[in-house]
């Protein structure tokens, strides 16, 4: 490798909120660390598989608006998740496709047209140090990722050399997956998310559970990587909304005294004292991660065994993509 090669991706414009995220920090929740990681994990995994990376490697998660950046060297990259109207040197480029950039090329993403979060992966991955076993950025505590923070203009992200020859990577294509695009293109009134009731559904009145399962909730602008704050019909508790603080799994639907649900997301705290009426199914959580403020959500209860059957089906789908 010649020493003159600039193995970086230089950020010209960082977009609204762009962070490095992998599959998350495992094993540290008991010490109070959020799992973090990609909000839409299947999209991160597809981005990585397209460019020949391990599926859980760190990529850039771009929120609402994407980055503009310059490749310092020849590089294969991919974009998945939200449609951010990306262009390479001014030419529109497709998502879910491995693409070749040359040194000096400019990638420019715009605002998300479909979805909320886009992923940019590069062949070989970003050369970031793992902190507590993960390259994910924990924004709340300045942990991991690129300098523990969101990207800024002028940042130069170091790139690793891909292990697979570049010639074998370009032109890989995946179908645009799951219901992501269909949901918006079909102009349905909103998206339906499958949930498993509990662990504390019994804290709510029958009318409260009925409201939760039968009415539309709107995503509010206060939503972020910690939680999606929703607004709709008040969910009534039997006697108070507080429980003795216990563990919070990503996807938990907490209901504080306002009676308005908050779905806990990747950066959520590990423990909490609000009753949890339900937990969003693993296969549905990435869909919620793609919801924008103003989008409408409704919930449909399924049994935990059904949710696990869906999780296994999705995992099998992903395994079929790993055979490249």
């Amino acid at each position: 490798m010649s020493s003159g090669v600039d193995r970086t991706l230089r950020i010209q414009s960082p977009g609204m909120l762009t962070t490095a995220q992998d599959a998350g920090r495992v094993g540290w929740m008991a010490s109070g660390f959020s799992r973090s990681g990609a909000m839409d994990l299947p999209s991160l995994r597809r981005a990585n598989l397209l460019v020949g990376n391990d599926k859980d490697m760190a990529a850039l998660e771009m929120t609402m608006t994407g980055v503009a950046c310059i490749f310092g060297c020849d590089c294969v990259f991919s974009l998945t998740g939200a449609d951010m109207c990306a262009a390479l040197n001014g030419q529109p480029i497709p998502r879910y496709t491995a693409l070749q950039a040359r040194a000096g090329d400019t990638l420019a993403c715009g605002g998300a047209r479909v979805g909320m979060r886009g992923y940019l992966a590069v062949a070989g991955g970003f050369d970031l140090p793992a902190v507590l076993g993960s390259c994910s950025t924990g924004l709340k505590f300045g942990l991991g990722g690129f300098a523990g923070r969101k990207l800024r203009a002028g940042d130069a992200l170091p790139l690793r050399c891909p292990e697979i020859p570049v010639s074998r990577l370009s032109e890989r294509v995946l179908p645009v997956p799951n219901a992501l695009d269909a949901h918006w293109r079909a102009q349905r009134p909103g998206m339906q998310l499958r949930v498993v009731l509990g662990p504390q559904a019994a804290h709510f009145t029958a009318a409260g559970v009925e409201a939760f399962l039968s009415s539309w909730y709107v995503v509010t602008p206060a939503s972020d990587r910690m939680g999606m704050k929703l607004e709709g019909k008040k969910i009534e508790a039997v006697c108070g909304y507080d429980v003795i603080s216990d563990g919070v799994a990503p996807g938990s639907v907490q209901v504080p005294a306002s009676g308005q649900p908050i779905v806990m997301m990747a950066d959520c705290q590990t423990t909490g004292g609000y009753a949890k009426i339900a937990t969003v199914a693993g296969v549905a959580l990435p869909l919620l991660a793609q919801a924008k403020p103003g989008d409408k959500i409704c919930f449909a209860a399924i049994d935990v065994r059904e949710a696990q059957r869906l999780a296994r089906r999705e995992a099998a789908q992903l395994r079929r993509m790993e055979i490249w």
């Binding site: 094993g27 929740m29 008991a30 216990d246 563990g247 423990t271 696990q308 296994r312 995992a315």
Partner: peptide
Amino acid sequence: VREYVPTFRSLLVLYEPC
């Protein structure tokens, strides 16, 4: 089983449904 979160009166067990 991926990890545990011990709390006042419960143990949250995070696991791989696959």
